[in-house]
């Protein structure tokens, strides 16, 4: 393990303002994610899990404190820099899959690859490989509405891993799935972590899902209230 964590949240405040009201979601939060870890974030609804994930993925900024990725302070980058940083370093997986309905599976996976310097043929090969890893080689040319929920989430995972990001951020990836599909998705994430050393931070409500992680972080009201190795 290197001398500093892959992701470090140090003294992070996140305050949302709604009209005159200030909502202190995170208050001086400290949190480290090591390279190669599979971490589950758990806690009651509204406690700030998604907020943490958004900060780690540079789609949100803290009001105070630092979000360091491999030692680099994300909040010092401008919008365009953060965008290309995301393209290079992060793969997002959402509860609602978030695929482009007008694109086929392989076209969806190709989207983030378009932002890489890879040549065209290599991008295509990479997209096909990603779909093969998630077990959807046969469905490459299907549109999202021709796929089951579990398959859609697999496409979303393929899209997230296609660029070989340094971290996968998954926000309730099994939240919309039946038990069987959910288990299959978790198998897949676990395999990615074990075989490729993929760092994964996953928000979940499901204790069964959390069991797959190395470490479970319990949150409440924007604070770490407990953590244990799974």
């Amino acid at each position: 393990m290197s001398d500093h964590p892959l992701i470090r949240l140090a003294g992070v405040d996140r305050i949302y303002t709604r009209g005159n009201e200030e909502l202190h979601v995170l208050n001086g939060l400290d949190l480290d994610i090591q390279k190669g870890e599979f971490v589950a974030l758990m806690g009651p609804s509204g406690c700030g899990k998604s907020t943490i994930l958004n900060l780690m993925g540079a789609i949100d900024r803290p009001n105070a404190g630092q979000v360091l990725f491999d030692g680099e302070d994300l909040s010092e980058m401008n919008e365009a820099e953060r965008a290309s940083w995301r393209a290079r370093n992060v793969g997002f997986i959402f509860q609602a899959y978030n695929l482009m309905p007008v694109l086929t599976a392989v076209q969806n996976v190709l989207l983030p690859l378009q932002l890489t310097p890879l040549p065209r043929a290599k991008r295509r090969a990479q997209a096909e490989l990603a779909l093969q890893i998630v077990g959807l080689s046969e469905r490459m040319n299907h549109y999202p509405n021709q796929l089951s929920g579990g398959q859609e989430q697999r496409v979303a995972i393929a899209r997230a891993i296609a660029t070989d990001p340094r971290v996968l951020l998954a926000d309730e990836p099994t939240g919309d799935l039946d038990a069987k599909s959910a288990a299959a998705i978790l198998d897949l994430l676990q395999e990615l972590n074990r075989q490729n050393g993929q760092t994964i931070v996953m928000v979940t409500h499901d204790p069964k899902a959390a069991e797959r992680a190395h470490r479970v972080i319990q949150l409440d009201k924007g604070r770490v209230v407990g953590g244990h190795a799974a």
Partner: peptide
């Protein structure tokens, strides 16, 4: 698109 890293 923005999440994936397409610039504004």
């Amino acid at each position: 698109l923005k999440t994936l890293g397409f610039t504004p």
